Lab assay of single mutants.
Amino acid sequence: MDVFMKGLSKAKEGVVAAAEKTKQGVAEAAGKTKEGVLYVGSKTKEGVVHGVATVAEKTKEQVTNVGGAVVTGVTAVAQKTVEGAGSIAAATGFVKKDQLGKNEEGAPQEGILEDMPVDPDNEAYEMPSEEGYQDYEPEA
Score class of each variant (00 low, 15 high):
105 E>Y: 14
13 E>H: 04
124 A>M: 12
65 N>A: 11
96 K>S: 12
31 G>Q: 15
23 K>E: 00
110 E>G: 13
125 Y>V: 07
93 G>Y: 10
45 K>S: 07
21 K>E: 00
63 V>W: 13
35 E>I: 09
8 L>H: 00
3 V>W: 15
23 K>V: 12
107 A>Q: 04
93 G>S: 03
20 E>C: 07
56 A>P: 01
79 Q>R: 05
50 H>G: 10
5 M>E: 01
110 E>P: 10
62 Q>E: 02
82 V>E: 02
101 G>P: 07
69 A>R: 08
15 V>S: 00
72 T>G: 04
4 F>Y: 12
3 V>A: 15
8 L>K: 00
76 A>D: 03
92 T>P: 06
57 E>P: 02
107 A>S: 10
76 A>F: 10
19 A>E: 00
10 K>T: 08
116 M>T: 05
128 P>V: 11
72 T>C: 13
56 A>E: 01
123 E>G: 06
112 I>C: 01
44 T>W: 15
13 E>G: 05
110 E>T: 05
87 S>Q: 08
87 S>Y: 13
104 E>D: 10
76 A>G: 07
73 G>L: 14
114 E>L: 09
69 A>W: 11
77 V>G: 01
125 Y>G: 11
108 P>H: 14
53 A>R: 07
123 E>Q: 06
131 E>M: 06
77 V>A: 06
14 G>H: 06
76 A>N: 08
130 E>Y: 13
87 S>I: 13
65 N>P: 04
11 A>C: 11
125 Y>D: 13
73 G>W: 13
30 A>F: 08
93 G>V: 12
61 E>Q: 10
42 S>V: 05
35 E>N: 02
19 A>V: 15
53 A>P: 02
16 V>D: 01
34 K>R: 01
31 G>F: 12
65 N>T: 11
28 E>A: 06
84 G>N: 07
10 K>M: 15
47 G>D: 06
107 A>F: 13
28 E>S: 09
92 T>Y: 15
113 L>M: 07
84 G>A: 15
78 A>F: 10
10 K>C: 03
83 E>F: 03
100 L>A: 03
49 V>H: 05
42 S>Q: 13
15 V>I: 03
113 L>E: 10
61 E>R: 07
86 G>T: 11
79 Q>D: 06
91 A>N: 04
105 E>G: 11
133 Y>Q: 09
47 G>M: 02
118 V>F: 12
44 T>M: 14
90 A>H: 10
33 T>R: 11
119 D>S: 01
28 E>L: 11
97 K>T: 13
74 V>Y: 10
128 P>S: 06
97 K>L: 05
131 E>P: 11
72 T>I: 03
2 D>C: 00
4 F>V: 07
42 S>H: 14
41 G>K: 02
39 Y>R: 06
116 M>G: 04
65 N>M: 13
16 V>R: 05
80 K>Y: 06
6 K>A: 15
64 T>G: 08
134 Q>R: 09
108 P>L: 13
133 Y>H: 08
78 A>M: 06
8 L>C: 04
134 Q>Y: 07
98 D>F: 07
97 K>M: 14
75 T>R: 12
20 E>S: 09
88 I>A: 09
76 A>K: 04
107 A>Y: 09
70 V>I: 08
86 G>H: 15
52 V>L: 13
97 K>R: 11
94 F>S: 02
4 F>R: 00
17 A>S: 06
37 V>M: 08
30 A>C: 11
44 T>G: 03
12 K>T: 06
9 S>G: 07
32 K>L: 08
116 M>H: 07
27 A>Y: 09
22 T>Q: 00
72 T>Q: 14
19 A>F: 09
29 A>W: 12
105 E>V: 13
76 A>T: 08
123 E>C: 14
113 L>S: 07
35 E>M: 06
109 Q>K: 05
2 D>N: 03
22 T>A: 11
19 A>I: 15
117 P>M: 05
124 A>Q: 14
2 D>I: 05
51 G>H: 06
82 V>H: 05
59 T>Q: 01
109 Q>T: 12
106 G>F: 13
43 K>I: 15
5 M>P: 15
55 V>I: 10
11 A>M: 03
78 A>S: 03
41 G>Y: 15
